[in-house]
Computed example of a mutant assay.
Amino acid sequence: MKPSRYEEAGVSIDAQDQAIEQIRGHVGATNTPRVLSDLGSFGGLFDIRFPEMDQPVMVASADGVGTKLKIAFDAEVHDTVGQCLVNHCIDDILVQGARPLFFMDYVATGKLKPHVVADVVKGMSIACKASDCAILGGEMAEMPGFYKAGEYDVAGFIVGVVDRKKLLGEDRVRAGQKLIGLAATGLHTNGYSLARKIIFEEQGLKLADELPGTGRSVQDNLLAIHRSYYKPLADLLDKDHIQAMAHITGGGFLDNVPRILPKDLSAHIAVDSYSVPPLFQYLVDKGGVDRDEAYRVFNMGIGMILVVEAERAASVTEHCAAQNLDPVALGEIKAGDGTVVLT
C-alpha cells in the first residue's frame, strides 16, 4: 500500500480514529437526558429548557491548566490534569451561582498518542460525572513541529445556568458581611511556573522525592487534583445563603477577590486566621517569596472564598465543615476602595 502523504508530513488520521474509539466510552458515560447528539457530530446538541427557572441565564467560561502539564508529562500521568481542567472550569462559573451543564475540550499535540488522549479524557469524564456535567464534544489536533515530543496542550470550555434572581456578584456585597475560606487540595492549577523553578531548579528535588514537611512526594503534591466546590455548596446556593464567591486562581487573593468587590468596599483578610499548608510554607521559605507576592501567585491553601451575611456565617461554616471543606473565618467586608487588605 502506498504510504499516506499526510502521515509522511506527521499527521495520522488513523491515530485520531483510534483515539476517538478509546474515548467514546468515557464521553458517553457523562451523558445526561439533555444531550441530544452522539460523539462524532459536527456540533453538540443540548436541550436548554428550564421551566423551573423564571429567567435562566447561561454562564460560560474557558480555561487551561497551565504548566501543571509539565508535571504530567514528566510523571507520565495524564488523567489527573483532565480532572483539574474540568473542576477549574466548574469553579469559575460557580462563583456566579451557576450549575454546570456541559463541557467541551480541545487537545493539541505534536504526535497524537491515542492512549494519552484517552487518559486525559478519562479524567475529564470522572470530573464531569461527579458534577452531573456532560461532555458535549471536543477537538483533537495533531500539529507536527509545533509541540515538543511527548507534550500536548489542553483547554476546556464550559456552559452552566443560573436563575437571574440568584446570580451572585458584587451587587450583593455589603459592609459587615463575613469572608469564609475553603481549603484547596494543593496548588490547584496556578503558580506552577514558580513552584517548578523553586522545587526543581533551585532545590534540586525529583518527582519521587519527599517534599519536606508534607509527608508526600513532590509528584503527589504537584499533581493533586483541583477541587470542585460545586456539589458541596449546591445546597447553600439553592437556599440563597451565599452572596458572592471568589475562585482563588491566577492572581491569588489580591487579584481575584477584588473581582467581586464594589469600588467603595474592601475585603479585610487576616492571614494568620488559618494554618498555611506545608507545601506553601516550603515554597515561600525556600523561594524567598515575600508575603504579598505569595498571596498573589499562590492560593496559599484557600481555593474558594465565600461572602456571607454575618448572621449566616455560623451555619454556612457548619455546612462546609460537614462537607470536609475545612472552612476558616478569614475576615470581613469593610468600607474601602475595592481592594484586599491583608492583616
Results as ranks from 00 to 15, higher is better:
234 A>F: 05
71 I>N: 05
128 C>Y: 06
123 G>Y: 01
43 G>T: 12
232 P>D: 03
97 G>Y: 07
63 D>V: 00
91 D>G: 14
292 D>T: 03
44 G>M: 00
61 S>Q: 10
319 H>M: 02
328 V>R: 10
300 M>L: 01
31 N>A: 02
261 L>Y: 06
172 R>K: 14
48 I>Q: 05
330 L>S: 00
163 D>A: 09
292 D>L: 00
250 G>L: 12
268 H>D: 11
151 E>N: 07
18 Q>E: 14
119 D>Q: 15
130 A>E: 13
65 V>F: 00
82 G>K: 00
303 G>M: 06
111 K>A: 14
288 G>D: 13
311 E>W: 04
233 L>A: 11
7 E>K: 15
33 P>C: 01
5 R>G: 04
6 Y>M: 12
278 P>W: 08
167 L>K: 11
325 L>I: 01
285 D>Y: 09
184 A>C: 13
334 K>I: 09
315 S>R: 01
149 A>R: 12
11 V>M: 10
155 A>T: 14
111 K>G: 06
319 H>Q: 05
337 D>C: 02
60 A>V: 15
310 A>G: 00
296 R>Y: 00
137 G>C: 03
226 H>G: 05
166 K>P: 05
104 M>F: 03
227 R>W: 07
141 A>F: 04
296 R>W: 01
276 V>D: 07
295 Y>P: 00
211 L>S: 04
59 V>C: 07
277 P>Q: 09
208 A>H: 13
164 R>M: 10
311 E>C: 05
175 A>V: 07
69 L>N: 13
305 I>P: 03
286 K>G: 11
27 V>L: 02
7 E>A: 08
227 R>E: 06
2 K>C: 13
302 I>W: 06
144 P>C: 08
334 K>D: 00
267 A>T: 12
258 P>M: 10
147 Y>D: 09
168 L>Q: 12
264 D>C: 10
124 M>I: 02
312 R>K: 13
107 V>F: 15
232 P>V: 09
57 V>G: 06
174 R>I: 06
178 K>S: 10
175 A>P: 02
172 R>A: 09
160 G>T: 04
71 I>P: 01
93 I>H: 09
98 A>S: 13
139 E>I: 15
174 R>N: 10
298 F>N: 08
108 A>Q: 15
235 D>Y: 08
37 S>T: 06
54 D>T: 11
190 N>P: 04
265 L>C: 07
236 L>M: 15
185 T>N: 15
217 S>I: 03
342 L>N: 01
77 V>L: 09
284 V>K: 13
64 G>N: 15
112 L>G: 12
